[in-house]
Design a protein around this nucleic acid. Structure first.
Lengths: 221, 221
DNA sequence: ACGCGACCTTACCCGCGGGTATACTGGCGA
DNA sequence: TCGCCAGTATACCCGCGGGTAAGGTCGCGT
């Protein structure tokens, strides 16, 4: 049993000093990178099932069995179902934010930045966590998570609105009500998550490109 | 008790013949109109709560107590929670369909019909049952209801797409992919249900008017 | 060697909520 | 005056699912 010398690992060099844990030697199977990888696997699997069956209709047993483990294993990595959902939408929102802020900070006219922004945003809506953002209603989160969720979504809306306002200011765009225009644009993009299918007639990129074309036409001066 | 002659009704004329039940005399408190009114009250109350808290988070007790009755009373009028949700979305969808088909069948260019269609559709998304349509995911319905729900939604999409295609044909509109354009337009409109608040800065009509202006600009030739 | 701690299991708890069995009431027709 | 039926209530059932208690195993550092 325990006496079997399964010496599968590489030569274990005795760390000549307490050189921290950065040494590429040390323990082979990684300290906590594995933990993060497992957390990530849980989130991916959960997000996919949430998107398919809905959050409430997906039980923790569903999440666990999809990963071939049992429920308490999941709870070893996450405190609650709410935390899992929140992490999913947080990941989705940070991906969207990276894309949209990247577009906002690049050079060019407002219209050009808008084009880059729509492209990045639309692409995000075809990936698991982005879909999760669109499909998750405020009601499914705990009050605290809901507050953070709303704040993060609001950030995205603000970025979009600021780009539109900048475009109006520099004359490359026009709209009588940038606030409502923002909601309509965001709605068209968010809704992609509801109908996009990976095996559909169009690729992600084609959809994103078309969304850019269609949505900017409504605002171009 | 029962001897109290509460003769609140109009003079009860003895029906001189078995003249059916169409006579405006006959029994005062109506035969089944009241039943329909009560069913409708249940649906209204349920829809509002579904929109506010979400379908799964709204219990049948919630629906009942909001109407100052108890659960079995609700089940006297509806067979299941699923039926209630389905009736809500059916009402919402038929309202949308009336508006959009009305627009499709009126005269004028494709663009003009599109304007009328967007206006009616957007208006529907600011009313209880329309909001219900937008917020209800396929996953919350039973398999049978889900199939019907999808078929009805598909009808709406078809109407929108046909208007767009007609507009392209008559030269009043242009788009490289009417199918995806339909989804983007429908998405922008459906999403209204997610952010519209009756006490917001804009009235329903203002929002609908602006949606017309914004969304048709993306497709006008 | 030994024990400790990370990890994963089996087995369980318990509240919530959809739905029901049953019984009471009041009004209408005969 | 009797019974029937629509309508409503009280009290209950029970399965589902989030979350936990407690124990086993493996691999590491000492």
């Amino acid at each position: 049993m325990g006496t079997d010398p399964t010496d599968t690992a590489a030569p274990r060099a005795t760390p000549d000093e307490a050189a921290g844990d950065l040494s590429p030697w040390s323990t082979r199977p990684d300290p906590e990178a594995e933990r993060r990888a497992k957390r990530m696997a849980v989130l991916r699997s959960a997000a996919r099932q949430f998107n398919e069956k809905g959050f409430r209709a997906t039980s923790m047993d569903d999440v666990a069995t999809a990963l071939q483990v049992t429920k308490p294993t999941i709870y070893h990595y996450f405190a609650s179902k709410d935390e899992i959902l929140f992490e999913c939408v947080r990941l989705g929102l940070s991906q969207i934010r990276e894309g949209t802020t990247g577009a906002a900070e690049r050079g060019g006219t407002g219209l050009e930045r808008m084009q880059a922004m729509v492209h990045a945003y639309a692409l995000s809506m075809t990936h698991d966590f982005g879909i999760c953002v669109s499909r998750t209603g405020d009601a499914e989160l705990s009050p605290e998570s809901r507050a953070k969720f709303r704040a993060l979504k609001r950030e995205i809306d603000d970025i979009v609105r600021e780009i539109i306002e900048a475009g109006i200011e520099d004359g490359s765009m026009r709209s009588e009500d940038p606030k409502i225009a923002t909601f309509l644009v965001a709605g068209a993009i968010n809704w992609i998550a509801r109908w996009y299918r990976p095996d559909g007639a169009r690729t992600r990129e084609e959809i994103a490109d078309f969304a850019v074309q269609h949505l900017t036409r409504a605002l171009a001066a």
